[in-house]
Design a protein around this nucleic acid. Structure first.
Lengths: 256, 256
DNA sequence: TTGCTCCTCACGTCACGTGAGGTGGC
DNA sequence: TTGCTCCTCACGTCACGTGAGGTGGC
């Protein structure tokens, strides 16, 4: 007869695990020898390996208990289901590997692929990491709140970059981050922005009616970007002085 | 700004999980709004997804905590290690699938492959499931106790079946299970067994000297098989009457 | 006597789950 | 007032791990 450690060793489990299975009623308590030690027969080895195989496949012990009493047909069906689960688990692990690997190299994780493509486009246009980060954070918040809108919005935003004037303005805005707040170019830039918006008002209005972003969110985007650069605060002041409600709201709010 | 459920939803976790990560110090507590609700920014989304990706890859939270503060180089090394673990996990799952599948169709689980082959040989010789089970249980116990001996022993046992006489005796013994205890064939069979053993004494002795099985284990094998059939009890009585110590010890014990 | 394996409580651990009781704006 | 989301304890769960204190044969 086998001792508990021989039994456990053969099934590749700890002694505690065997005792736990006794407590849970999965493995019947065997007889004891003169010293009160448990003594196991061959059937216990078979039973324990059965239990262990199922438990290691992720079957909860409560269900293992039920399966041990199932008839062969029912058991075979359950095994098929367990196999499906195991295959699904393999797929999930592959997905995990992909995601863990992408942790090393930045974006992507929190964003749908279209947005990642868009951010790559910004980079390739020569925009700074600073503004790419601001964009990224904005899109992350948008994706978290309105996941179903992101596809449309990113399409519209990307399309705006087809316009050379818009591209130049955006690049200028990016560079203005490090300007002094009393740099005269800030007023020029404000003028350019207003001119551009007025020119293209029709298309912008049409686009905006499809985009139900509330003020609070727009306000957040403002707050987040603005807090940083003195030049950008100044730019906002200039725009407000000219009747707009701030630069990130530029395309949304009519002049007073 | 995002509420806790928006944040959780985007990362695919429960609200409780987010709070748990706060408690564990993994995710910094954000500011509160007027109602005392937590309000999250885009960075929290990125942070949470980082934590979640690592946690789902099976990294313990205590280690996640350390990894979040690691420099990129150290982080990259850790990610490589995690990837190795994930690959190992995939292999383990494939192994589990194999083992769970084999649960449906019997043996194999508790036994090394040579023994499974041996049992298949017994079956193909026309021996009953009853005696195959007795053999299987014996080998399971042997494998549990002396895993390193099983290879040699099974080789010797299988070789014995090359002898036609031995094969016939074994088949006869199998069939005798259902004989009446006063069937005259039992005495004939006992005679045949003794004759066979005496004939081949030399080879048997040589084999036995290589096989250090203690009496207690042999006794177990006896006890397990004997309890069942009246004819087998009777066989044992006859053998004992003729000076042997029992049929499973036939090959081991000298006549008195 | 020392070392080893076994025994039985019984509390600990890990990553949350699950009420219990309460608040704040529509 | 009802319904919804949030809040903070604090105990529960799952599958064991880990001592604590003791026994029995070499």
């Amino acid at each position: 007869m086998l001792t508990i450690s021989e039994l456990a060793g053969f099934a590749g489990v700890t002694i505690r695990t065997v005792r736990h299975y006794h407590d849970r009623g999965l493995l019947p308590e065997p007889g004891r020898d003169a010293s009160g030690y448990r003594r196991y027969d061959a059937q216990a080895v078979v039973d324990l390996i059965r239990i262990r195989t199922l438990a290691e496949a992720g079957v909860p012990l409560s269900r293992v208990s039920a399966l041990l009493q199932a008839d062969p047909e029912e058991f075979a069906r359950a095994v098929e289901e367990i196999d499906r689960d195991l295959r699904a688990q393999t797929r999930r692990i592959q997905e995990n590997r992909r995601r863990v690997a992408s942790l090393v190299s930045g974006d992507g994780l929190a964003l749908p692929p279209e947005v990642v493509t868009y951010l790559e486009m910004l980079r390739s246009m020569g925009l700074s990491e600073r503004i790419v980060t601001i964009e990224r954070d904005g899109w992350i918040l948008l994706s978290a709140r309105y996941p179903e809108l992101v596809g449309d919005l990113i399409g519209q935003k990307a399309a705006a970059f087809d316009d050379e004037i818009f591209r130049r303005l955006y690049l200028m805005f990016d560079q203005s981050y490090s300007w002094s707040p009393d740099d005269p170019r800030i007023e020029v830039m404000a003028d350019l922005m207003i001119t551009y918006m007025t020119q293209d008002q029709e298309r912008m209005q049409a686009a905006l009616e499809q985009v139900p972003i509330e003020e609070s969110l727009a306000g957040l985007l403002d707050a987040q970007a603005i807090t940083t650069a003195p030049a950008w605060r100044r730019l906002e002041e200039v725009l407000i002085a000219r009747g707009y409600k701030g630069w990130t709201n530029l395309s949304r709010i009519e002049p007073a």
